[in-house]
Amino acid sequence: MSLTRHQGGGVIALTFIGAFALAILPLPGALEIYRPEWVTLTLIYWAMAMPARVGVAIGWITGLLLDVLRDTLLGQYALALALVAFLTLHLHQRLRVFPLWQQGVSVFVLVMLQGLVVIWIKGLIGQSPGLWAVIAPALTSGLVWPAVYLYLRHLRRRHQVA
């Protein structure tokens, strides 16, 4: 078992780094709100494809890094992404057999949930973005999911991540 643990970890890390880069890539002001949650998508994929390796702890750490990158309250995305990872782990066997569009719908719900956790925490400290700020990224995340899924699956098979 220890043999298989170390295969393709670099690929997983690189996909996360790519997702972080996409998450801070400058977009024109009006489009900024429609940015898909790339880090969450990557996390959902890996938690679904290899639940033994990418789980709640990885989700929490990526969330913490996202907190620093976005300069938000430290721990807010960490909490939200740990929750997303937890739900994905719970559902991974079902998610895997869904057709792509249905997976997209589930991803929409998961990203929405993440957004609700974030908006709730922001509400507690006195900032209140509108509800559209939660729905818009969830929608685009659900829409780009098939592409993300196919691309990451291609990477996983090509580099035999196990």
Binding site: L73, G75, Q76, A78, L79, A82, L83, L89, H90
Partner: peptide, 21 residues
């Protein structure tokens, strides 16, 4: 289990957020 881990990490997040705020 993952449930316990989630609870632990959630507690840690809340501590961090409180300290940060």
């Amino acid at each position: 289990s993952i449930g316990t881990r989630l609870l632990l990490l959630a507690a840690l997040s809340i501590t961090l957020m409180t300290l940060d705020q």
